[in-house]
Design a protein around this nucleic acid. Structure first.
Lengths: 228, 228
DNA sequence: AAATTAAGCGGACCCCGGTCCGTTTCATTA
DNA sequence: TAATGAAACGGACCGGGGTCCGCTTAATTT
């Protein structure tokens, strides 16, 4: 499939899913993100990219995420359909690009922002804060996050997820050095997955407070600390 | 969408996703399953159903799950395409039906089988055994399980998942009565999700032993017990 | 056995994601 | 500024999921 090739242009330096994925050192992380403005793009390409994102955002606002059809976006941006795919790879890529700006801010917050999320606080405090922020982030434009969900076998390979995962692994290594941080991190991240948040808040009508309390409790159990 | 209507025929007595989902008592659970033989089906319908499942299984064997096209199945079963959709609702439904038999056996094992999975063992022991079995089950025909993965907003609503979830909730209620069993159960189940198993074992080449050890550790932490 | 009717049937049809490839446009080099 | 090659473009095209609706058939009733 040409998908990988296209994505390698969209998401520049990114290892293939195959290799065993050594734990990534923190400073490298910042380079993994999607890259909103996409440097090194020909003038017309850059312009079309902007028009496409603009059109897509308009469509979301007007008809919800379901209204974001590749053809519709192309038409609204006065651009050929092929162009949309060339630029974003596939529908998920487009939707992800739409979320990229806020995702970047989120990443900045936990990678290098103020405590308690950023460096300076204790690992457990940072984990707690991270979860709250992630819950909040998932709750805002849940619809888009849901629509941007990649197909099952890409889910764990997508850059934003890897960044978050690596970060949680790092915190867990500090908080519980003797545990299998990789696996525990997956468990914790599972709690924060948009589809689950959606199920609990929308389909089961759970209040966010309960989810947050659940997160605190989970962190406490996993790190074998007390709640306070 | 007519989907829900169709499914209500395929999965007879099943509450809508909307209501807050009260904890289901154990004896009821057995009725939730998909129902392989589908009683109350007209003779021709039952015959076609069987032919379709047969054809689908053949296609999986020959061309992998990706080869299971609704049209292909219909053709192989000498049946109209509409018939496939009438019977199984959608592709996911068909694939799920294909897994139904083994899923039923799995359910029987943890609901009423021998200890340590079935009743008789302690809740923590049952949890540990449950996870191992689930891991094993996910590892066998991973491909089919992956292909049968429902779209994100159905994921937590699908009968097999609800059965497992309810069961884990029950065990957690016994093991850690003061915790939020609903939420903890989701966390534990997340660890056992086929896409994650696939990612870890296939894309990251992790050995199953590590996953299993991870499960034991997770159960221990969540229930605040020691490993042994 | 004939009549009735609800369930089932099938395939034409629509929509949408994704691909392909001949044409156009930008940037670079001469 | 003309030539050249790579990158971008666009829309015809394809395949597959899902729907629709007029027709058929199995079960039931009289």
């Amino acid at each position: 499939m040409a998908y990988a090739v296209l994505m390698s242009r969209v998401l520049p330096p990114f290892t293939e899913p195959q290799e065993p994925q050594e734990p990534v050192a923190t400073p490298v992380l910042l380079e993994i993100g999607t890259g909103q403005d996409e440097p090194g793009l020909r003038a017309d390409a850059a312009r079309n990219r902007a028009r496409l994102l603009d059109a897509a955002a308009r469509l979301v606002a007007e008809h919800g995420a379901a209204g974001v059809t590749m053809e519709a976006v192309a038409a609204a941006a006065q651009v050929g359909k092929g162009t949309v795919f060339r630029r974003f790879g596939d529908r998920t890529g487009l939707l992800t690009a739409l979320l990229d700006h806020s995702e970047k801010k989120f990443q900045a917050a936990f990678l290098s922002g103020e405590p308690p999320m950023g460096p300076g606080a204790s690992p457990v405090e940072r984990l707690r804060a991270f979860g709250c922020a992630a819950l909040r982030r998932a709750a805002d434009d849940l619809e888009l996050q849901l629509a941007a969900e990649p197909c099952p076998d890409r889910r764990y390979v997508v850059p934003p997820r890897r960044v978050r995962h690596a970060h949680v692994v790092m915190l867990l290594r500090q908080a519980v050095p003797d545990a299998d941080g990789e696996l525990l991190a997956h468990t914790l991240m599972g709690y924060l997955d948009p589809p689950l948040i959606h199920h609990l808040t929308k389909q089961c009508r759970m209040p966010m407070e309960r989810l947050q309390a659940g997160w605190y409790d989970l962190v406490a159990r996993v790190t074998r600390t007390t709640g306070e």
